[in-house]
Amino acid sequence: DLSALRVEEVQNVINAMQKILECPICLELIKEPVSTKCDHIFCKFCMLKLLNQKKGPSQCPLCKNDITKRSLQESTRFSQLVEELLKIICAFQLDTGLEYANSYNFAKKENNSPEHLKDEVSIIQSMGYRNRAKRLLQSEPENPSLQETSLSVQLSNLGTVRTLRTKQRIQPQRTSVYIELGSDSSEDTVNKATYCSVGDQELLQITPQGTRDEISLDSAKKAACEFSETDVTNTEHHQPSNNDLNTTEKRAAERHPEKYQGSSVSNLHVEPCGTNTHASSLQHENSSLLLTKDRMNVEKAEF
């Protein structure tokens, strides 16, 4: 173990290094160091905050020279020094078990990766560091076993998940096959086929009936047209017969005018059967003409 005197000496050296690497504005270890034209180094955030307070150039807090945003430059070497100082402080805390008085939040800088452990060898070769390295080497064999167990647990979990997924996939297939086998029997399929065939026959029977009705309507229309044509021909046949009657009536009127007047009046009210309204109107006109002729003949006879 380190003596108290040596611990104090190391602590004083760390404090001196820390004062050199402090920012003059925030009085902390410089984060993202930036250098000016006057070779003074500050935190990048502190300098941008200072420049944004005034429009135009501002003055350096140490030498009062003008500073602009374009004049600022990043210093990589200074950032490396800060990183190495942080590593020294971490090693000091691990070796002594004491917390550094002016320690900052170094938890963000710590890294437990194997590459980081290899890099620590180049920091300080001390008894405390050696003991700590031995402890780490002793704890390393235990870690692979834990990793193997965790991997086995994960693989077993994956296997159970896969088996569950396969079961879920197989179950719908089985149910679907069961439904297909038990849903419709052979008799049901035959009945469905016969039902479809009967429906098709009914459709075939319905369509000819409609065509037959249309044919019957067409035949009825044709018969009505033929009947009207026969009526017209009958009226045409009746007209010459009426003319013959008129000639006979004229002759009778010349011989017996008194008797014919009474008979002509009675004939006005008689309509021949089986004739249309057109034929009756023609008869009325003929009878009126005959009456006028008879009157003329009677007057001539009187004179």
Rank of each mutant, 00 (worst) to 15 (best):
L2I: 07
A4R: 09
E8S: 11
E9K: 13
V10I: 07
Q11A: 12
I14Q: 13
N15R: 11
Q18T: 13
K19D: 12
I20H: 07
E22D: 06
L27K: 03
L27P: 10
I30E: 06
K31H: 11
K31A: 11
S35W: 04
S35P: 09
K37H: 03
C38Y: 15
D39Y: 06
H40I: 09
H40Y: 09
F42C: 14
F42N: 14
F42I: 08
K44G: 10
C46Y: 14
K49Y: 11
N52Y: 02
Q53D: 08
Q53P: 09
G56A: 08
G56D: 13
P57Y: 07
L62P: 04
C63D: 04
I67S: 07
S71C: 12
T76F: 03
R77C: 14
Q80I: 08
V82W: 14
L85Q: 15
L86P: 03
T96L: 13
A101Q: 02
N102G: 14
Y104L: 05
F106P: 12
S113Y: 04
H116V: 09
L117R: 12
E120L: 15
S122D: 11
S122N: 10
S122V: 05
I124P: 12
R130G: 10
R130Q: 03
R130H: 05
K134H: 14
Q138S: 06
S139N: 07
E140M: 13
N143W: 04
S145K: 11
T149Y: 15
S150G: 11
S156D: 14
N157T: 05
L158A: 09
T160H: 08
V161N: 11
K167C: 00
E180K: 10
N191L: 00
N191E: 14
D200W: 00
E202C: 00
L203Y: 01
L203N: 14
L204N: 06
Q205K: 03
Q205F: 00
Q205T: 02
T207F: 13
R212I: 05
D213L: 00
E214K: 15
I215F: 00
S216K: 11
S216Q: 04
K221H: 11
A224L: 02
C225F: 00
E229Y: 02
T230R: 04
V232F: 01
T233Q: 08
N243D: 11
L245I: 05
N246M: 11
T248M: 01
E249D: 09
R251Q: 02
A252L: 10
E254I: 00
H256Y: 12
E258F: 01
K259Q: 14
K259H: 01
Y260A: 13
S263T: 07
L268M: 14
P272R: 03
P272F: 00
P272Y: 01
C273V: 15
A279F: 00
S280D: 03
R295G: 15
N297V: 14
E299L: 00
E302D: 05
